[in-house]
Nucleic acid binder design. Structure first.
Length: 417
RNA sequence: GGGGGGGUGCCCGAGUGGCCAAAGGGAGCAGACUGUAAAUCUGUCGGCGCAGCCUACGGAGGUUCAAAUCCUCCCCCCCCCA
């Protein structure tokens, strides 16, 4: 960091605060600025206004979202003000960040629904009682055309095209709409509206975050500093965690599913998850990494511990222990789970007094079509009371199904009532 | 406004009259193995009670015994020039 103020002038506790805020962050720009702000906040006795804008594009939030929320919560912990902006308006524009194509625009209903669950779920990480919660539609919706024009005059097209995802798409002959160009401007305007001192975001937000600075200046404000956090890689180990890639772990996933999904991440991701998601201190993370490298800590065991930690964070220690027991039982010992969901035999499964197995699977939701059900059976993926069925033509009498457990693959179980 | 290039299954992408429910890859699903729903290997991957049939290659018509492939019109995207 640049030493504009000499380290000796800075109280030790602020230096500590700064160090902790740097932990798990990627870019902190402009260099040294945040430290100044922390000092200024202290001397002027004015907490920093730390902005996080989120677009409610998905109905549920996942662990990837919690990385930046944790960082915001950390600022809160140090007495600063968390300003959480729900991008009800910007989500109608669609953030082009990291995208190779335009996002679909969402409807108002979807946005409202998503926003309310977002806030509810963010509360699992953030202290919402002490946070400022706003919606950017409050100030973006009433903007007049001349105000929009004033705003768009602050940025040049060349500057826009410097941006990685835009230039890539431009070179690849892929469409970029003017609408998408507007997005960074609107996000910058949010910073003006809430008079942000610091804005947080994922590394893919760097451009948008930086864009806020000249815009704030143009509106006569002190430009914000920015802090980015890494993007969490999803369970596939390849792409960033995202609902649309289907590689996410939702904070509202039931404990067993959360546990199982954590177990499905590639081994190499374990340490990242540990440091970004559990709130563990650096020393603990280093130790885990070290012991794994030495072979003193079995990877499967480490992953179980990680999964248990995460479930504890979002549920409870008991729920986490149960989830672990469930996992070991079902996947390690290949036994049936302690609790199996039950369902009545659907009426449409019975034809002429007989139940054809594929139809049973389809009607109970264990398979999406009879064709898929057939395939599952032919591949040996279907068990009825622990007996693998391989005849796709199998039929049984409805009475014979009472209390029977149908298993599809390794993790779908259903008891017929 | 003019000229050119494109739109294929969940995604990427091959296919330019029959051998095409459509190569190849990815994702997904199943099986084997294992240290786990890791990794690896194998299989599968539109629907239908399925050795057969139905629906599908931007949309609508047409030519043909036969169309993703040819023709007409329409919609959408990209590039170049203005």
């Amino acid at each position: 960091m640049e030493q504009i103020v000499t380290p000796e002038d800075i109280p030790a506790d602020i230096r500590e605060e700064y160090e902790e805020l740097l932990l798990g962050s990627v870019d902190v720009l402009p260099e040294g600025e945040l430290l100044h702000q922390l000092v200024r906040a202290r001397t002027e006795d004015r907490p920093l206004r730390v902005k996080l804008g989120v677009d409610p594009t998905a109905p549920d939030i996942h662990l990837g979202h919690t990385v930046v929320l944790r960082k915001l919560a950390q600022f809160q912990k140090f007495g600063h003000t968390a300003v959480l902006i729900i991008g009800d308006y910007t989500s109608k524009v669609g953030d082009p960040s990291g995208r190779s194509k335009s996002r679909p625009r969402l409807s108002d209903d979807q946005i409202t629904a998503n926003a309310s669950t977002y806030v509810e779920q963010a509360a699992k990480v953030l202290d919402m009682d002490r946070a400022e919660l706003t919606y950017n539609g409050n100030w973006l919706a009433p903007l007049r055309m001349d105000e929009v024009l004033t705003l768009s005059a602050t940025v040049t097209v060349a500057r826009m095209l410097e941006r990685d995802d835009f230039s890539r798409r431009y070179l690849a002959n892929e469409p970029i709409s003017m609408l998408e160009f507007m997005y960074p401007l609107l996000q910058g305007y949010d910073s003006v509206a809430v008079r942000a001192d610091v804005e947080l975001g994922g590394t893919d937000q760097k451009f948008n975050l930086l864009m806020g600075r000249p815009i704030m200046e143009a509106y006569g404000l002190v430009p914000q500093s920015i802090l980015t956090v890494p993007l969490l890689v999803g369970t596939d180990g390849e792409q960033k965690m995202s609902k649309s890639y289907g590689n996410y772990i939702g904070v509202c996933d039931p404990p067993e599913e959360m546990f199982g999904k954590v177990m499905s991440i590639p081994d190499v991701l374990m340490v990242d998850y540990w440091s970004l998601l559990t709130g563990a201190a650096k020393r603990e993370v280093d130790e885990v990494e070290h012991r794994l490298q030495e072979g003193a800590y079995h990877p499967a065991e480490a992953k179980r511990d990680l999964a248990e930690k995460l479930v504890t964070l979002y549920y409870s220690a008991e729920a986490a222990r149960d989830a672990r027991a469930h996992f070991d039982r079902v996947f390690k010992e290949k036994d049936k789970p302690a609790e199996i969901p039950e369902t009545a035999l659907p009426a449409e499964a019975v034809v002429e007094g007989r139940v054809w197995l594929p139809r049973l699977l389809t009607s109970t939701g264990l398979a999406s079509s009879n064709g898929e059900a057939r395939r599952l059976i032919e591949q040996g993926g279907v068990r009825v009371d622990d007996v693998t069925v391989q005849d796709a033509k199998a039929e049984m009498a409805p009475e014979a199904l009472r209390g029977v457990v149908v298993q599809v693959g390794k993790r779908k179980f259903l008891r017929i009532r």
